[in-house]
Nucleic acid binder design. Sequence first.
DNA 1: CATATTATTTACCGTACGGTACATAATTAA
DNA 2: TTAATTATGTACCGTACGGTAAATAATATG
Lengths: 202, 202
Amino acid sequence: MNISEPKKPRGRPSAFNYDEALQKALMVFWSRGYEGASMAELTEAMGINRPSIYAAYGNKEELFCKALEKYMVGPTAYVAAAMREPTARQVVEAFLTKSAEFLADENTPRGCMIAIGSLFSGADADQVKQALIAYRRGYETALKERFDLAKSQNDLHKSVNTADLAKYVATVHQGMSVQATGDATKEELLAVVHQALKNWPT
Amino acid sequence: MNISEPKKPRGRPSAFNYDEALQKALMVFWSRGYEGASMAELTEAMGINRPSIYAAYGNKEELFCKALEKYMVGPTAYVAAAMREPTARQVVEAFLTKSAEFLADENTPRGCMIAIGSLFSGADADQVKQALIAYRRGYETALKERFDLAKSQNDLHKSVNTADLAKYVATVHQGMSVQATGDATKEELLAVVHQALKNWPT
DNA sequence: CATATTATTTACCGTACGGTACATAATTAA
DNA sequence: TTAATTATGTACCGTACGGTAAATAATATG
């Protein structure tokens, strides 16, 4: 009786793969935003009928949040990688440079789902908006804490306000996201990054 | 027979003031975005019935565009004023500082309608999205031309890429708009501006 | 086999959406 | 007063929305 042996489920087996379908939903939310993505679009992209979605993922808000988690550990994994660069300057350079490439990548929807996925709240979708605000604050805090570490290593000067610096970097990233939904090219975004990195505090 | 004498209209007079009602519509679009603002909300805020809106302003897209024009000459007049500052550095400082105050102003909706009014397009609203992209490019171009002028006056060094610099400033502004829809305070936005101005080219 | 369990399918729910037809009210011109 | 003109109010259009009830199909267990 192996404890790691997966019990066979009793009823009719699922005809779709949970993660694959969620990945499809992610792409829809990413390209259309929360409000802009309709259940009709989602069902078609996911290739399963509506009641199956509700049974497997819950309602639209929960589906969005589950897709968001997939987004965090997948497409935006480069952010965590950037944090591990040896110096604060290199962290930011990696973060923003990779962001420029990511946001304007032609193989994925333009812009960052977390930055601009739902800026307004239609009273109902307030939970989604608040979740996104929390995520944004999350990686801003991660930047700040990385800068605090840099300060303790004399990598950043003691006079630097790490919270302000983190908010600045996050703001540039969010602005780049807006630019990416327009017609900004990767090269233009990289030029913005170059400008933002001039005179980095030491 | 004075030519400037306004002819009295023939039929039943309007029961509402065109500009006042449009101003109300503007506030709704500003706070909810294009997609998020429903005709029901608009009619209630404007205080007139739906057929009167369609008769006076056209459909929802046209109403949005008319409200946008009002936004341009009203709330965002500070942008044009900033352009008239004597030096490029002062132009940007005025633009971003005033933006920080504007975006987080508690008496108006948070964020900039042009920057984030409609980032996604639900196929139908593509015209609105494209209009906003054009407006964004408009003030980015205005910045670039102001920087070109500064270059010709030896206010900015010849080596400066004015297009890149303008895009950088626009990006910071758009990022601040996203921040403002979250919980960023005026003071935090001003700290971002301070950070963004540190690396100003000379 | 029968039974319990789970997933899928179809068809539908109530509501809100943007937009409009139509009758009526208010005004000017004749 | 009558006709022409314009705006208003009511009531409605078709459609799309997010979400679900209920019947059916597919599997495991006994």
